[in-house]
Computed example of a mutant assay.
Amino acid sequence: MFKVMIVEDDLKIRDIISEHLLKWRFEPSKITNFENLDEQFMVVKPHLVLLDINLPIYDGFYWCSKIRQLSNVPIIFISSRNQNMDIVMAMNMGGDDFIQKPFSLEVLTAKMNAILRRTYTYQQEEKEVIEHRGLILNLNKGNISYHNSEIDLTKNEFQILYLLLKKKETIVTRDEIMQALWESENFIDDNTLTVNIARLRRKLEDLGLIDFIETKKRQGYMIP
């Protein structure tokens, strides 16, 4: 049974989500004290976090960055905010997806199941690492290494790089990547993919891998 940490300031929404997840055999943990969320995270040890942006004391962006210092667990933002900058900020802080209120509980469940499948099945399906041009993608740890330096990846960054490496020397379209990430391109804003690609490239550059991912104009991306 997957543990889900619900960090939502609206009591009614928090209870509705919790009751719905119980029906789907999740184990929800409702947060009611919004201080020291990072410490509560370590106690709950969730498989996935549902995180609102508007929270007392510190906002969801702050707590997302704190959680990212502790874990690569999937984080889905749930918010009434709908500006592109909010979505970009959520992704830059380490979020894996963004759902705008009001939302369908069925869509929420579908997104959660998709991201949980992506996150927790690789160890059973693949060998431990993928190597290309000196870069090592560790499938168990969810990080990359190059010349004895390591950097952790978010779930989306990991999946993007995994797909590009599996299809190296072949152009992968944006639609293919979005389908792999969210099962259906209808579930994701195109701008969110751009943010994830940019963030992944910055991490590769931090390791010294410049232009490791090539952009093919009007076609997609490729790792040569």
Rank of each mutant, 00 (worst) to 15 (best):
F2H: 13
F2Q: 09
M5T: 06
V7M: 08
D10Q: 13
E19T: 05
W24Q: 15
T32A: 04
N36Y: 13
V43P: 01
V43E: 06
V49L: 00
L55Q: 04
I57Y: 15
F61A: 08
S65H: 12
S65Q: 15
S65W: 10
K66R: 15
Q69D: 14
L70P: 05
N72E: 04
V73N: 01
F77N: 04
S79F: 12
Q83T: 09
N84S: 05
N84H: 10
M91S: 03
D97E: 09
V107R: 12
T109Q: 13
K111S: 12
A114R: 10
R117W: 02
R117G: 01
E126K: 14
E126H: 15
V129L: 07
G134V: 01
N140L: 14
G142L: 01
G142C: 04
I144G: 03
I144A: 02
I151L: 10
K166A: 14
E169M: 10
T170E: 15
T170H: 14
D175R: 04
I177P: 01
M178K: 15
Q179H: 12
L181G: 03
T192C: 02
T194M: 04
K203V: 01
E205L: 10
E205K: 08
D206R: 15
L209T: 02
D211A: 03
I213N: 13
E214A: 07
T215W: 07
Q219N: 07
G220S: 08
